[in-house]
């Protein structure tokens, strides 16, 4: 039996993982993704949100070959296989950076600031990295 199976199944909390930093310059984006992939195995309500420079984590066409670092942008595509379906991106953050949803590696739910404000306040646990 795995440790998480000891929990009562009816204890479902809303966990939101907040990403506000771009990839590669620091390790936060990669290590946050690692948490979410593990968190998906627990029967909780998991969502990931990208705002501010965090939207750059999802930028299409990343090629890290010449900097010698792992191109984990491909891994976001696996979130769906892990049943992490609530992936939110703030519309205003995209626009402020000259991006649209078409520039991103995966399909996301684009939320306005007002909509995201509601979703954030409804969480039980917010993990920022």
């Amino acid at each position: 039996m795995e440790p998480w199976e000891e929990h009562e199944p009816e204890v479902v909390k809303r966990f939101m993982y907040v990403n506000r930093r771009p990839p590669h310059g620091t390790i936060y984006a990669l290590e946050c993704l690692e948490v979410v992939l593990i968190a998906a195995a627990f029967d909780q309500d998991v969502s990931m949100v990208f705002l501010d420079d965090g939207v750059f984590q999802l930028k299409r066409g990343q090629d890290t070959a010449a900097i010698g670092m792992k191109n984990f942008s491909r891994t976001y595509g696996a979130l769906d296989d892990y049943d992490v379906e609530k992936i939110y991106v703030e519309k205003e953050s995209l626009e402020a950076r000259g991006l649209t949803a078409d520039d991103l590696v995966i399909p996301v739910e684009v939320l306005t600031t007002a909509a995201l404000r509601e979703v954030m306040a409804q969480q039980d646990v917010v993990i920022s990295s």
Partner: peptide, 16 residues
């Protein structure tokens, strides 16, 4: 990392 998620489930408040 499961221990982090478990803390989030079991604790009344999580502070980062």
């Amino acid at each position: 990392l499961g221990q982090l998620v478990e803390a989030g489930i079991e604790a009344d408040r999580m502070v980062v």
